[in-house]
């Protein structure tokens, strides 16, 4: 049986989350930003798993499965958008894409 305190586990998830956040804020490349979002999603899932174990309930794991499906959709759409953006602007620099209108 794992006897690491639950606080430590959540701290681990939190560190991962904030690393993802830093990545999202720092990077200008859309692919890296999407990766950072993945990291944040994953750490949120991790907290659910920790909670599921802590309370001894299956619901947390169910939530992780939902997060997984949402992530899958998000990645599919996000990558398709990245492809379109690259096709259209010939760059992945998010700062270059600040025209929120139809050309």
């Amino acid at each position: 049986m794992l006897s690491v305190p639950v606080e430590t586990q959540i701290l681990f998830a939190g560190i991962l989350f904030f690393l993802g956040m830093i990545g999202l804020l720092v990077r200008r490349n859309l692919v890296f930003m999407l990766m950072s979002i993945e990291i944040m999603f994953n750490s949120a899932g991790l907290v659910f798993i920790i909670a599921a174990r802590h309370w001894n309930q299956p619901d947390g794991q169910v939530m992780f499965i939902f997060i997984l499906s949402v992530t899958a959709v998000e990645v599919a759409i996000g990558l398709a958008l990245i492809l379109q953006v690259y096709h259209h602007f010939k760059t992945l620099d998010v700062d270059a894409i600040h025209k929120l209108k139809d050309e």
Binding site: M35, Q61, F64, T71, A72
Partner: peptide
Amino acid sequence: LLDAPFIAALEVIIYAGAIMVLF
């Protein structure tokens, strides 16, 4: 280690497998 072997498998198969391959 957190007693969720099924989720561990999903993590490897879907996250590390499918999604990252897409990336």
